[in-house]
Design a protein around this nucleic acid. Structure first.
Lengths: 130, 130
DNA sequence: CATTGACCTTCCCTTTACGGGAAGGTTTAG
DNA sequence: CTAAACCTTCCCGTAAAGGGAAGGTCAATG
């Protein structure tokens, strides 16, 4: 299979596939005489794995480790779990940050007339009362 | 004031201050004969405004508009509100994405033994059952 | 056989907001 | 005079992707 075919089957952009190869997440693809990358269904499976991990927000660095653990049939699940837990912690931190921003912003937006008049609690807050 | 002084007073990094000038968020600073940027307390106020807006997650593009509206004493508050509402919408979208990731991840992590054994629901999910 | 269009290759640029660090000039204090 | 602590600009790196250029390859068509 050429890269376009595998891109379709995995729903991963060709550009990303080449990038994953550079990052060492995908094995280096074999080449035809003309230099075209060649793939098999096994590569499609890896790419789907990567795609799913991206959807769960894992970094490419984490994904590289996860793919390697996935391939290693004698991995300890503790290693997988620790990567996932670290990621969960980071997501929870982000979540709190966003919730805190939203809590402030929603109050400000609610109190802003949003009409032709210049007075605006949003700007007042940002200018912390000048 | 030199840039270091204003950086201390506003709690904004010197590098960022120069960057904000490039982006047109800060007015171009006057210079001493030696080329050092010169600032006044007014600049400190602007920088605090920017910092607060960053803390609320606004993009630099939004912040540029917000600073300009803030300076314009005859702005319509509707413009400010619309920027803020768009930002709230984006944050809420991100929030939902993260919540959805966390919901999946937490289930998977909970069901993973996390010991020396290789079987792992996290990898099973990512490999969607291979 | 030549051409056309769809594919592939590599390379560089852009995004976001920031920071590290180099190389070099200025100011201030001892 | 010199050393420390400033300041300047310039380039690079971050994360993950995508745009687009310039050029090579392949298959089908006239």
């Amino acid at each position: 299979m050429n890269i376009g075919e595998v891109a379709k089957l995995s729903d991963v952009n060709s550009k990303s596939i080449r990038r994953y190869e550079e990052l060492g997440i995908m094995p280096k693809a074999g080449r035809t005489m003309a230099g075209y990358r060649q793939y098999s269904m096994n590569d499609v499976h890896i790419l789907r794995f990567v795609k799913r991990a991206r959807e769960l927000g894992f970094s490419m660095k984490d994904i590289k480790q996860l793919v390697s653990l996935w391939k290693n049939k004698s991995r300890p699940s503790s290693q997988v779990k620790s990567i996932a837990k670290k990621h969960v912690d980071e997501l929870e931190k982000k979540l709190e940050e966003i919730q805190s921003m939203l809590s402030t912003l929603n109050k400000l937006v609610k109190n802003c007339h949003g009409d032709g008049r210049p007075d605006c609690p949003i700007l007042d807050d940002l200018g912390h009362g000048e």
